[in-house]
Structure formats: structure tokens, C-alpha cells
């Protein structure tokens, strides 16, 4: 699944965002699904909307795809206003919905040809089959595909019109780790071909690995936007020392350890943010042996988006 030369696209003009969302709101009854969201996606950028279920990621994405009108605010894709020029936009974007929506009785190849016929411009079916590793499944009816195969077919269908912007809604949900890595490769290649990608995910690792920039969403709002490094750097200059919580050591002992700036206890594990890792670990080991034990599952790491998310929302983002 290396970058395919057949897919190379001329570079987009610089400076003009391919996606521009400005103060968009959308309510369903009393629920404010999207509550004043603004962001921009640059040409050739992979932009991730990260957040738990119900954060408003999918609603934001589907408004950009022209599937729901916003209550207020402005949505622009490829410089075109979504509320007036949806048809033109749909011609040039690729869409993968959260649930693979496929005619169950049609085969993989038939579906690719069918969707190709909806667009003025379309890619070679053989090439798409090769790209998404679906050649062996070409004559299989879509209802017989496994979760991962269905997900890959959905991505292939999103690419059928050689799109300039690709919308992927939780593309790797339900995939095993190997399949997830392979799909990341394909998405990375899209960027290499000069396409912009907007994806939603609730996998922090995926956002960190794949996205140039990330918007963290919760309760219909964007809490912060930036590269992983920016998001982490804004809050954490420290390293994190993490271990299974030792009940005998109280909060005062933790905060009193050398180098420790802050500490958090979450789900049976303690995280110490420190400016001086060796000093902190030395102090921890001494404190632990004083109460007759030693720290289990001790690890030292940089702060991650997980820490950022915890900091921003007060709770962990779980798969």
C-alpha cells in the first residue's frame, strides 16, 4: 500500500483553507450537538476532531458534507458555501460515514463501479481494489464482508471520485491493531498525494500518530486546537512518572517528592508530573520501601494527548 503515482494530484493553491468552519451551531431539540465551533483545515493537511461519543464530531462533519443544515454559522468547503453549492462540493469531496452504508446484495466491484458512475470524474476500480487490499474480495457481496473489509470498502468508496478533500468518520473503529496500522498508511498516503483529510476519532493514539493538527471536542465545543506538541506543550513542560497507586502513600508524600509539580490519581494509577525524573524516582523508591513495598508498573513518559484531554475535560477518554 505504498503511495501510488496514479493518485498524485496537483498541489492546491496555498493560503486558502480547504475547510472553513465559522461559529457553527446545531441543536436537536434541547440538545446542543454543536455549540459554536470554528476551525480551518489547510490544503494537504490531516486534521483530526478528537473527542468522546456525543461530542459533536460527527454532526460537525456531516454538516460539512451537506447532510444537515446548520442552525447558524458559516461552512465553506474548497471555497464554496455548503448551504448554496452542496452539489458542486459533493462532486469534489470523498465521504466515509461512521457506519458503512452499502447495498448488501452488491459485490465490492459492483459497488465501486456504481459509486463511480455518480461522479463526473472517477478513479480506476482496479487501482482502488489494489490500494485498499480488496482484490481478493472483488466478487464478494458486501453483506459477507468482515468489519475491517467493510471499513476498507467504505474508504475506497470515499476515494472513488479522486476527491480533493476526504472526510473520514472514525475510519478505524472496530479494526484490529494490524488493520488499523494499514489504514493509517493509506490515510497518510492521501496526504502525500496532496489531499486534505478531516477525520474524527476517539483514539488518542490515532490522533497523535496521524494528524497534523487536532481539535479536542467535548459537549459540542472545541476546547483547544493545535499540533500534538502544541497541545501538550501548552500545559505540560514536565515528564510524567506513572505507577499503580500505593495506598499507604498519601497525597502529601506524593507532592512532597523532589521535582514533583502536580499529581493525579485516576483509575488505580498515580501520575506524577516532574521537572526532574531521577530525583523523583529516587524519592518514590525510598518512600515506597519505607512502607515496605515498591512501585508496580512504573513507567516514565512524556505527557500525551491523553493527559491533555484529562486536563481539559476532567475525565479520561476511553476507547
Amino acid at each position: 500500500m505504498a503511495a501510488s503515482p496514479e493518485l498524485a494530484r496537483p498541489p492546491q493553491p496555498d493560503g486558502v483553507p480547504v475547510i472553513d468552519v465559522h461559529d457553527v451551531r446545531k441543536s436537536y431539540g434541547d440538545v446542543r450537538a454543536v455549540d459554536g465551533v470554528s476551525f480551518q483545515v489547510a490544503p494537504g493537511e490531516i486534521f483530526g476532531l478528537l473527542g468522546p461519543n456525543g461530542a459533536g464530531k460527527t454532526t460537525t462533519m456531516e454538516m460539512l458534507e451537506g447532510l444537515h443544515p446548520p442552525d447558524s454559522g458559516r461552512l465553506t468547503v474548497l471555497g464554496l458555501d455548503v448551504s448554496h453549492r452542496a452539489r458542486e462540493i459533493k462532486e469534489r469531496i470523498g465521504v466515509q460515514l461512521q457506519t458503512p452504508a452499502l447495498f448488501p446484495q452488491l459485490t465490492v466491484e459492483e459497488l465501486l463501479r456504481l459509486f463511480g458512475s455518480f461522479f463526473k470524474r472517477h478513479l480506476d476500480v482496479e487501482m482502488l481494489l489494489r490500494l485498499l487490499d480488496l482484490e481478493e474480495k472483488r466478487t464478494a457481496r458486501s453483506k459477507t464482508l468482515s468489519g475491517g473489509q467493510g471499513q476498507r470498502l467504505s474508504v475506497a468508496l470515499a476515494l472513488v471520485n479522486d476527491p480533493e478533500v476526504v472526510f473520514l468518520d472514525e475510519p478505524t473503529t472496530g479494526l484490529d491493531p494490524g488493520a488499523r496500522r494499514r489504514l493509517w498508511q493509506v490515510i497518510g498516503d492521501l496526504k502525500a498525494q496532496g489531499r486534505a483529510v478531516l477525520l474524527t476519532t476517539h483514539y488518542l493514539e490515532e490522533a497523535e500518530e496521524l494528524c497534523d493538527r487536532v481539535a479536542i471536542m467535548d459537549h459540542g465545543r472545541i476546547l483547544d486546537i493545535g499540533t500534538s506538541d502544541e497541545l501538550i506543550g501548552r500545559r505540560f513542560h514536565e515528564r510524567a512518572v506513572q505507577f499503580d497507586t500505593i495506598a499507604a502513600l498519601g497525597t502529601e508524600t506524593m507532592v512532597g517528592l523532589p521535582g514533583v509539580v502536580r499529581h493525579k490519581t485516576e483509575d488505580g494509577s498515580t501520575v506524577l508530573y516532574t521537572r526532574d525524573v531521577p530525583e523523583t524516582i529516587g524519592g518514590l523508591l525510598r518512600a515506597a520501601s519505607a512502607v515496605g513495598t515498591e512501585p508496580r508498573n512504573l513507567l516514565v513518559r512524556r505527557a500525551t494527548l491523553e493527559d491533555v484531554f484529562l486536563e481539559l475535560t476532567g475525565r479520561a477518554l476511553r476507547d
Binding site: 459533493k90 460515514l97 452504508a101 448488501p104 455518480f118 461522479f119
Partner: peptide, 16 residues
């Protein structure tokens, strides 16, 4: 069926 399986929605995301 096509509405329940979101096929109509998916088609709606094309210029069709």
C-alpha cells in the same frame, strides 16, 4: 431498508 442501513444517507453525500 436502505434508509435504515443509511444507504440513502450515503447516496445523499454524492452529487446524485
Amino acid at each position: 431498508q436502505q434508509r435504515e442501513k443509511l444507504i440513502l444517507k450515503r447516496l445523499n453525500a454524492t452529487p446524485l
